[in-house]
Design a binder for these strands. Structure first.
Lengths: 111, 111
DNA sequence: TTTCTTTATCGTATATTTACGATAAGCGAT
DNA sequence: ATCGCTTATCGTAAATATACGATAAAGAAA
């Protein structure tokens, strides 16, 4: 945002928007899908699967972590990323509620 | 994206990401909510509800329209925007599938 | 200790987003 | 035809996002 106008919107609007922002890039969608496939958390292989430079992937991981969609620990030469199920669930709930809310009125045919 | 790397990701990853992008701003969330409240489509009042300049709101409306989440017609001094229910439904379905997919494995406790 | 491997961070370039004011475009009313 | 109202678009400034290579950091392995 050019100027910070976040304060002008309701907190749930900001929360929903910022969750949405987290998955607003195909690389981050792909990362979440990759993490979801694995039963283990040792996820050093993410970089290899992705068609992006290591530093870029690392940046995307940071964004997902900041958004709260993944958890991660780094122990030296090995990192450990996995899905943050609680927050994913919260996000899914927010989205569900959002869609329910805006579509609760039957589609009117004007337009 | 600095360089266009969209081709490097699967189409559904891009589609989900671009839908998410559309609601990745509180103003656009608010616009969709406002449109959802109304039974009528005559939506000139959107600008008045929003804490943003008219030109900025118009820009957000365009983005929502490009993303396919709203429909809009302009007839002279009056515009007519409303929700695009079919696409909203598609988006909700994509998201639902996405969350189901990544969380189908039970949360493992490593991390 | 030195080397290797993995990952984060820094520096940087470019593209995109966000925002606003000013202007144009288009219809209705006078 | 002119004026007024509404909305889109243009021009522009500033912030963010995206990407990469280079470098740092830190444990594992030798």
């Amino acid at each position: 945002m050019a100027l910070n106008k976040k304060a002008k919107f309701a907190t749930d609007q900001n929360r929903l928007a910022s969750y949405a922002r987290a998955i607003a890039h195909p690389a981050r969608v792909a990362i979440l899908q990759t993490l979801g496939e694995k039963t283990s958390c040792i996820c050093g292989e993410i970089v290899e699967v992705m068609p992006l430079a290591q530093s870029t992937v690392s940046q995307h991981l940071k964004e997902l972590k900041d958004a709260g969609l993944i958890k991660g620990e780094i122990e030296g030469p090995r990192s450990c990323y996995c899905l943050h199920y609680e927050n994913l669930k919260e996000m899914a709930g927010l989205l569900q509620g959002f869609f329910d809310e805006i579509t609760e009125t039957a589609p009117h045919d004007a337009c």
